[in-house]
Simulated scan of single mutants.
Amino acid sequence: MPVTEINEIKKYYQALLTKDQSYVGIFYAGVKTTSIFCIATCRAKKPKLENTEFFYTVKEALNAGYRPCKICRPTENANEAPEQIINAIKMITQNPKIKISDSVLRAHEISPEIVRRWFKKNYGITFQAYQRMYRINQAYQELKTGKKIIDVAFDNGYGSLSGFGYIYKKIAKNSPSGHLNNNIILINRLTTPIGPMFVCATQQGVCLLEFVYRRMLETEFKQLQQLLNATIIFGENEHIIQTRIQIKEYFEGKRKYFSIPLHTPGTDFQQAVWNCLKQIPYGELTTYKQQAEKLHNPQAVRAVANANGFNRIAIIIPCHRVIGSNGKLTGYGGGLERKKWLIDHEKSNLKS
């Protein structure tokens, strides 16, 4: 069924006109004159309002007879990566020590051109750079176990120690011999019904989980690297794998609580506020004022709101469950529409 509420239709249409990234995955716009549907950021010529109808899910748009737009590819960009990309990433994760060349991709019926474009658009780096980071992470993990540098270099496919040392230092910001002083933050991407997210983790636990389109995300990355004296590189560890599984279960309505280790550098006050956030039950809401009162500091409403804003771990530390004292939705880095979606999602799952 299409969206019928007039104010919501107007809001979505304005977001479509301005290509508002915070609405990616929130709605899908069906164009009656072409029978195609798009996501908010589509570059195609915008239809007239009277020729547009909006849906909450891809399935609804498809059931209404619309086909995916070839420009914005809504079934790919709002949710899962295309199959060729999934297969290319799988080749890296299953064979981290082997260089996946264009010829290897073609042998597996994967287009190198499609892979290059997707990685540049979604990660801001090349597929080869992504591979190099994965291989360096593999080398870093092996060095941590006490393995000799020369063995690590050759086992990971490097033809010389100098070449390995150059790449390692370029990515990890330190030489292989200084690996004990290397602090690494691994970053990876996961998909959700309301848009892709970046997840970062150290050996201690998850330190960031944010929507890709969050404002100030670059600033968060810089702050996190400074706080942990670490370098962010693409890779994966058990905490990232666990997050991917549990977030998927959350969006499927199967999970209400998380058991993922977290690594949350911050001030004592921020830690107290974030711990308070974690105590808000699934499907329930509180206010900044109530948070301040729980912390026995009722005058600190503004400080509590600021600390909520510095929360880097969306959903797991559920700042989306905090609203204004007047009952209105306020301040959410992923966008107020996503905040509303998450609140409605939890309420509907409690009812069912």
Rank of each mutant, 00 (worst) to 15 (best):
I6N: 11
N7R: 13
E8W: 07
E8M: 09
T18G: 07
V24I: 15
F27S: 05
G30L: 02
T34F: 05
S35H: 14
S35P: 06
F37T: 01
A40V: 02
T41Q: 03
R43T: 13
T52D: 05
T52R: 00
L62D: 05
N63S: 14
G65P: 00
R67Q: 13
I71T: 10
N79R: 13
Q84A: 13
I92H: 01
T93E: 10
T93G: 07
K97G: 10
I100L: 02
S103L: 11
E113M: 12
I114W: 06
K120A: 15
Q128D: 12
M133T: 07
I136K: 01
I136C: 03
N137F: 08
Y140Q: 01
K144H: 03
K144V: 01
T145Y: 05
K148P: 14
D151W: 09
D151N: 11
F154S: 10
N156H: 07
F164I: 06
G165W: 02
K170F: 14
S175E: 12
P176W: 03
H179Q: 08
N182T: 15
N183C: 10
I185N: 02
L186D: 00
R189E: 12
L190D: 00
T192K: 05
L217Q: 07
E218H: 07
E220V: 14
Q225S: 09
Q225N: 08
L227V: 13
L228T: 09
A230Y: 02
A230T: 07
G235F: 04
G235T: 04
E238C: 09
E238Q: 13
Q242S: 15
R244E: 14
E252Q: 11
S259L: 11
L262M: 09
T264F: 05
Q271W: 12
G283F: 03
G283P: 05
E284V: 12
E284C: 12
L285P: 00
T287S: 14
N297I: 12
A300E: 06
A300Y: 04
I316E: 02
I316K: 02
I323G: 03
L336N: 04
E337G: 03
N349W: 08
